[in-house]
Simulated scan of single mutants.
Amino acid sequence: MKLLLVEDDAAMQAAMQRALERRGFQVSTCGDGARALDRWRAAVPDAVVLDLSLPGLDGLQVLAQARAEGLDAPVIILTARGTVGDRILGLNTGADDYLPKPFDLDELEARLRALVRRRGGNGPADTTSWCGLRVDASSGAVYHLDKPLELAPREAALLRALLGRPGHAVAKERLFEIVFAGDDSVQIEAVEVVAYRLRKKLAPTGVQLVTLRGLGYLLQAPA
């Protein structure tokens, strides 16, 4: 799922981006209302997470203009404004859901997936399938021919990231950000250990996890 995250608090934006990418989202970020509209127009997302208090245009102005232009991606509003009137105003302006701060990231993820399911989107709300491998949208578990693969959480995160671009190299640095998001106690070489373990668990499926020196890793279809 391609997600546009519009949040002007730099620390919160970075934390949310890391957390959501770890959950398998492709996150584009912006901290300014006017620029958010440009991003939305240029690369239409599957969903938008929109803060109300923004420089330039505030969140409601962004939302109203986007809807007026026919930009219909589902929107979840995040804000510290928690009154019923604010919620009603946001929903009447065109928001699909409303989550007051502080919020739980698991709840945000669940609401995003539910919104895209209702819209019939093609992101993680549907299943991702390739060469017999399938990612369950709700749990994040990975199956091969409908049998669950026994993977550690970091192995599953690595596999989900690679399944987003099967047959294409994903940089080690990018995988490190996804698999070890928020963990400052490990070095980038730790990705190699997770890849080694995942490679052995994929062997019975015929899918190969290939290391490309200087480029990263990719999934290769069975011969």
Rank of each mutant, 00 (worst) to 15 (best):
L4A: 06
L4K: 11
D8W: 12
A10T: 13
L20S: 09
E21S: 08
F25K: 01
Q26G: 13
Q26M: 14
V27I: 02
R35K: 14
R35L: 15
L37E: 03
R41W: 07
P45R: 01
P45M: 05
P45Y: 07
D46F: 02
D46I: 02
A47F: 07
V49N: 04
V49Q: 06
L50E: 08
L52K: 10
L52D: 11
S53E: 14
D58H: 10
L63D: 12
L63G: 09
A64V: 12
Q65W: 08
A68V: 07
I77G: 03
L78Y: 02
V84P: 09
V84G: 01
G85Y: 02
D86L: 01
G90T: 00
L91V: 03
T93Y: 06
G94S: 02
D97Q: 07
Y98L: 09
L99I: 09
L99C: 00
F103K: 10
F103N: 08
D104L: 13
L105Q: 13
L108A: 10
R111K: 10
R111P: 03
A114N: 13
L115I: 06
R118D: 10
R119Y: 13
R119W: 12
G121C: 10
N122Y: 11
G123F: 08
G123Y: 04
D126H: 14
T127F: 12
T127A: 13
T128I: 15
C131F: 03
C131I: 01
L133T: 01
R134C: 13
S139A: 12
G140E: 02
G140A: 04
H144P: 06
D146M: 02
K147C: 09
P148S: 01
L149H: 03
E150W: 09
L151S: 05
A152T: 15
A152Q: 15
P153A: 02
R154V: 10
R154C: 08
L159H: 03
L159S: 07
A161T: 11
A161I: 04
L163Q: 05
G164I: 07
G164C: 06
P166I: 01
P166K: 01
H168Y: 13
H168K: 15
V170P: 03
K172S: 14
E173W: 10
F176I: 04
F176M: 06
V179F: 05
G182V: 00
G182E: 01
D184W: 07
S185I: 06
I188V: 15
V193N: 12
V194H: 06
V194P: 09
Y196N: 14
Y196A: 15
R197Y: 14
R199E: 13
L202I: 00
A203W: 02
G206F: 00
G206T: 06
Q208K: 02
R213K: 13
G216C: 01
Q220L: 10
A221D: 00
